[in-house]
Structure formats: C-alpha cells, structure tokens
Amino acid sequence: MTATTLTPSVAPARRSTGWRGFGVLLATEARLWLRDPGTVFFALVFPTVLLVGVGFAIPGMRTPIEDAPPPWLGLTAVSLYVPVVLAAAIATPALTTMPVYFATFREKGLLRRLSTTPMRPQGIVVAHLVINLVAVVVSSAVALVVGELVFGLPAPRNAGTVALAFVLGVASMYALGTLVAARAPKASTASAIGTLIYFPLLFLSGLWTPGPIMPEAVAQIGRLTPLGAASQAMTAGWFEPGFPTVQVVVMAVWTAVLLPLGVRLFRWS
C-alpha cells in the first residue's frame, strides 16, 4: 500500500455541489426511521388505532345521529372523528417525532460532523422533512382506508377543500415543528416543548369534542391555531356547505410566519 491517495495538484480542483449522496442519505435515514418502533407506531399506525379505538370503545359511535340538525343528521359519530384523526396524523410526526430527531442530530454532534463533509447539514434536515411528509400521507391514507373498511365513511362533500385544508395543515404544523426544533439543544428539551404544544393543540382540534360537539368558545380559540384550523377546515370540506375561509387564512398566516422564523433560527451546531 503506497501513497495512492496523493494527487499532483495541491489545490483541490473538484468542487462539490453540497448535495452529492442525498439519495443515499435519504434512503439510509428512512431505513433508520423505520427501525425505531416508537416512531413507526406513533407516526404511521397511531391515527388508525385512534380512529378504530374510538369507533369501538365509545358506545353509540357507529349508530347514525338522530338528534342533530343537518348536515350532521344521519351521519355516524365516528365519521365526525375522521378530520380529527387526520389532524392527529399531521401533528404527531410534526411535533413529537421530527423535532426530537433534529435536536438529537444537534445534541450528538451529527450536524457539526456533516459540516466537515461535502454534504451540507441541511441535507439530513431535508431528508427528514421528506420522510415525515411521506409518513403523514401514508398514515392518513391507512386511517382512511381502514376507517372506510370498518365503519363505511361518507365521502367528502368537497374533496378539494379537504385536500387544501390538509396540505395547509401539514405546512403550518411542520413550520411549527421546525421552530420547536430550531433552537432546542437537546432531544429531551425538544420532546418536552413538542409535547407541551401537542396536547393542547389536539384538544383544540377536537380530539375530545369532535365537530359540532365542541363548545363554541373552544371552537373560537381552536380556529386561530394551526391544528384547530386544519381540523375545522377539513370538517367543513367534508360535511358542510361553504368554504372555511377564516381557517384557511389562519393556516396560511401561521405557515408564512413560522417557517421563515424556524429556518432563520435553526442552529446548525
């Protein structure tokens, strides 16, 4: 073994793009993500378990509602839960999985380590955004398919509105998750802050009081939060006539404010 690594020129002639190897990085991180049973359960399976659990555990969830005005009359109570479950499918990876991963990278020095390679530390953050976005889509799809098979869910009145609300919900909640992850020096800090936001937001999205059951005061507050707005907008698109303008604007504003803030404040070491 002689000095085969030596090249004649002193200055390195080749320049790296900073994204070489991103495919391998994404594939590796996805594999590692899938190796973590806790992550897989909460990010992929939890929404389905929640929907099926609520449908079977609470009495009367599967019988049609008889004492409510239209558009609720005749719907099963469990179907009112579908937008809430989708909101939970968005919030869980955005606030519990992703920020903890990012803070772990920072805590363990991985972001700094990547800074010494041609790969930018941004690469691993983007890889996890991609992984978690795919996770949200997959877990939502699984919940919808299983819910349809088990309970026979009604089709949305306006699928476009539901889709728009879902996309904006994802954008605003991931922006919030990025902000949580931006400064947290340790995984435990990110986990604590994420959880502290996660449960109130689930409450405001209607996990305990879905759809029309939510008290008006709670609904008023929830409307101003990203997850509450997402849940209400999806409920509106699914069951109600009209367009949830306020909720859509609320989510867009949250995204426009939180995302640049999270990116700007993100500590890379």
Binding site: V24, R31, D36, K108, T117, P118
Partner: peptide, 20 residues
C-alpha cells in the same frame, strides 16, 4: 460525535462515502 444508534457500521461507511 455519536451516530444514530441503529445505524450499522457498513451503512455509516456507505453513507459517508456517498458524499465524496
């Protein structure tokens, strides 16, 4: 510097190799 605790030796090597 600590890597992801679930990454194997070979995965880590192939991952870092891909950056260069």
């Amino acid at each position: 510097v600590a890597l992801n605790e679930r990454i194997t030796v070979e995965e880590a090597m192939r991952l870092f190799a891909s950056f260069y």
